[in-house]
Design a protein around this nucleic acid. Sequence first.
DNA 1: CCAGTTTTTGACTAAGCGGTCAAAAAAATT
DNA 2: AATTTTTTTGACCGCTTAGTCAAAAACTGG
Lengths: 208, 208
Amino acid sequence: MAISEKTSKPTRIQRARREEILQAALEEFSQHGFRGASINQIAKRAEMSTPRLLYHFKDKEALYRELLKSTLLLWLGPLQMLSDTDEPIEEICAYIRRKLEMSRKFPRQSRLFAGEIILGVPLGQAEVFEPLRATFESKIDLLQKWMDTGRIAPVDPHHLIYSIWATTQHYADFEAQIADLSPQKMTGLYTQAEGFLLPMYRKYLAVE
Amino acid sequence: MAISEKTSKPTRIQRARREEILQAALEEFSQHGFRGASINQIAKRAEMSTPRLLYHFKDKEALYRELLKSTLLLWLGPLQMLSDTDEPIEEICAYIRRKLEMSRKFPRQSRLFAGEIILGVPLGQAEVFEPLRATFESKIDLLQKWMDTGRIAPVDPHHLIYSIWATTQHYADFEAQIADLSPQKMTGLYTQAEGFLLPMYRKYLAVE
DNA sequence: CCAGTTTTTGACTAAGCGGTCAAAAAAATT
DNA sequence: AATTTTTTTGACCGCTTAGTCAAAAACTGG
């Protein structure tokens, strides 16, 4: 019987195999998108036969979905850490630092996530984004509260978050372009990015 | 003889057919990426048979390349318009407005371009970006000059441009995510984005 | 060592892929 | 109207795709 039809918890070996597969799948899906990637190639990269891969994941979509799920959790982490404080601007700056760190450490996950959104893969997008929406809305409320109490400048909180996402993810998602345009600047790129972005948001959000 | 092997200039009919194909190809490639899209589907969308499509474009790669070439020119337009002036901050704001307008009017082209960079399609990336690099570097010089003469605040010009690209394209590329998170705000989204972004860059680049 | 279960394999299928080709149809030229 | 050129078609090719299946192999506990 295929493992994916079972209900009991996976053995250590099963988890190890699934981890190998997910690793290879991240590589392929992030490079070619859902449709462009093939389970044959993923199996080859994971050094196993295709049926063996399909014993551990019932089909291509199930594999992709699992990968996307864990990636979303990773992606969501830095945002969830944003919490109320009496130094809201520094809290936002810390969030930007965490997002930049994420781009630097997990560029493939960032590109997988970007690919999923840009190429509108019809795997129930609403379902994928659902855990994100709740967090997003609560942080919007938090930002709004900071603005209402005059602790940061009043700007549209939605667009504030969008702009932070855009500027920080850009370094992972468009790495190929940046490498082509600033080949000499690739070392220390993220330090420079931080040096550019933090003052920008500090100035924009300062109350005086 | 296949049309693509000819040297003489195309007839009006040929240009019309190619236009129909490119239109359909834009839709498919921007939704599925190079590998994920199929010339069969493109042909079907353009309401013609696959051999007919291949009569007008010699293969999948030639079609994609042509599409990408015109998209790059479109993408490059707003940047090329950036030129020396005695009101550099307003010139930069005008550039941001043009980029936002581009995202709004040509979201599929924006996503095609983003997909090409994110999914590293190995169609000679350097070749694709070549016309971009020259323009990019000359505009970097212009920004640097403005900073050296104290007309805008001294920030890293590379990251300034990257951040403008990121924030403006984000609205086209991640449209699905934004629509999911702010469904009620989709009308007037670009006006709001402008209202958020322009003050941010004005404040950051102001000399006093 | 054996019985039972889990895991892996190799052979296979049906469908879709990118692309070719000769011949028919349509358009343009004379 | 006849001829030549351009365009379109349908049949076809070899290859890859996602996925199945029965049987073999490798573990497992008794």
